[in-house]
Design a protein around this nucleic acid. Sequence first.
DNA 1: AAAAGCCCCTGGATGC
DNA 2: TGCATCCAGGGGCTTT
Length: 271
Amino acid sequence: MPELPEVEVTRLSFADAIAGAKVLSVRLGKALRWPLGCSVAHLLGRTVLAVRRRGKYLLIDLDQGLLLVHLGMSGRLNFSRHPSAAATHDHFEMLTSRGTLKLYDPRRFGAVVYANSEEDPVARKLLGKLGMEPLSQDFDLKQFQAGLKRRKAAIKQVLLAGDLVVGVGNIYASEALFLASIRPTLSAARLSRARSAKLHAAIGQVLARAVARGGSTLRDFSSATGENGHFQLEAMVYGRPAQPCRVCGTAIKSVRQGQRSTFYCPTCQKA
DNA sequence: AAAAGCCCCTGGATGC
DNA sequence: TGCATCCAGGGGCTTT
């Protein structure tokens, strides 16, 4: 479900409200992708300092250690003073002095992992190979171009891989490539300087726009306060196979790349 | 080093 | 109505 915009929207929706909260109790449901990595007792009495984001991970800083939260494909966080009773797929529930944080995740590809610090091997394994943050100053054009030059794989898959730039998932990869008029199947290394610069800009543009629109709610995404996103209404190609391109009217094509669907306009994205 | 495939898991949509 | 099949916002791990 969640790409950078959905994760960031989630973060923004509860970061201030949970800051300063004391952890009162923690309940675990069925196993998520990885074990929590510490005892529940270790979390009790901790204070939540802040909530940050790195790629598609949320980092919940505690006065001692931090929790790495990933939403996987179907995860949603909810933070509420008066939470409803635990639902079938609530697999992590943390009661605090400011409210209850729940991770609802039917497919259980998500995770909540404790680490002593970001330098902890547990954290390094998950965060260590992540690429540049596309919405920060750190998203350097030269580095982006140099990274593309050494990859012969299809540009769409290089974007998804996350080791060059983070946070771009299946929706926004297709959307950014449309904005930049680049065919998703083109080898990354074959992009000209001008076109990779255009893509660099398009990535920042589409992600920022999606955050502003509250993310994309395709079936069930909502922020930690239950708000739906609206970016899906302005998607140019994602999820629109055989429908007319909003620019030129050509039927949008759908292809398979690395067992994921890719959408593009064969006219606007000639190569 | 980079690329391609394989999984993990549940549920909704579609087709017979 | 029932059942089989396919598909879904991710990404770590293993194999080429």
